[in-house]
Write a protein that binds this DNA or RNA. Structure first.
Lengths: 196, 196
DNA sequence: GCGTTACCGTAACGTACGCTACGGTCTGGA
DNA sequence: TCCAGACCGTAGCGTACGTTACGGTAACGC
């Protein structure tokens, strides 16, 4: 036996470095050397912690999901009514702050990467469906008399709206300002109160 | 004087090849060699037609905008009422066919590229704002008594919804099926008939 | 204190990239 | 018919990538 390392800690540090590089230079700039430099170590250490670059990517993708899920949990728990919880979760999923805008850029990067990487595509589908299910459950709680099919349809629409706002705001924050995103979500939610 | 070439034709062929590669292999797979192979020529010819890779990307981005704009024109002209035109334009912007799904993948690729490339970002903003303006004009025509600010807000919401559907369907066509996209758009349009 | 061994930095490999220089090829005008 | 020259395929440049092999180094058991 000899030197022991804290594997989990190393993975987290490298995940943070991966995130930082991803936000600063985008997906094309995400290289092992850049991650190592940001983490203050060498590529050798990176590839001793993660088997290869794809493992690092997968870990960073899980980190993104964990962050957004965590924030959604907080927003949901802080709200009083189901309706308020729905609104809070949707609003936090949009990107009013610079931190969220950074997340949106990273999200777009992973989305584009998923188009050519089956593993990342599977992760994306899984995480997105989980988000849709969460929204569907909140819609069902806010509108108890709705059939579940309508809740599911409303959930997919709301998620599409939120992700669309995120994506468009990532590259054009002037047109898709915080207020524009806010009003878009509130207008969509107003439909829940007065269904056809 | 000597051999003459059809520059416009070559540019169009190479743009189409860029398009094809982007749809098939995603943004990381978009290399000059891949484009040349798809176009049946060499990298030398590619770089004699376009100054560099960015010029090729810009031309392909313009081609994408031209295609979608063309299709929107057709849908808009074929509709009878402003309301029908709005619905037709939004529905064709979604991706019910494999061809549109390919366009959506390409769109995502350019979006991700725009995050790191200011020139592509400018193009993206310009084209997207033009699309928002088109939708806003159709909303204004369909709802003549609305203030223009409300039309603009509705337009940004509708565009965000449509692009969100496109983006999500590109990577998860099962969850975001044609019917789901259809009903999402129709539900959003129904709000125009019964404003608050 | 010392050897063993897990750990990781160093260096380099092979590959693929964007891009360029050059020379062959084919065309259009005289 | 023939030549000037526009055109483009070939080959390779320099660079950066992911990955690997190896040797130094530091810590744990005895």
């Amino acid at each position: 036996m000899a030197r022991r390392r804290d594997l989990a800690d190393q993975q987290q540090r490298l995940s943070a470095a991966t995130w930082s590089v991803l936000a600063a230079r985008g997906l094309p700039g995400l290289t092992l050397r850049a991650v190592a430099e940001r983490a203050g170590c060498t590529t050798g250490m990176v590839l001793h912690t993660f088997a290869d670059k794809q493992a690092l990517l997968v870990h960073a993708r899980e980190l993104l999901h964990w962050r957004t899920g965590q924030r959604a949990d907080v927003a949901q728990a802080a709200a009083g009514t189901p309706r308020a919880a729905l609104r809070a979760v949707l609003l936090q999923a949009a990107s009013p702050t610079e931190e969220k805008r950074e997340e949106a850029r990273v999200w777009v990067g992973f989305l584009a990467a998923a188009l050519a990487d089956p593993v990342l595509a599977d992760l994306h589908r899984s995480y997105n469906r989980r988000f849709v299910d969460r929204i569907a459950a909140l819609v069902a709680a806010a509108c108890p008399d709705w059939p579940s099919a309508d809740c599911a349809a409303a959930a997919t629409s709301l998620v599409a709206l939120v992700e669309g706002l995120n994506v468009l705001a990532a590259v054009d924050p002037a047109t898709y300002s915080d207020e524009a995103q806010h009003s878009a979500i509130d207008t969509a939610l107003a439909r829940l109160d007065a269904p056809l």
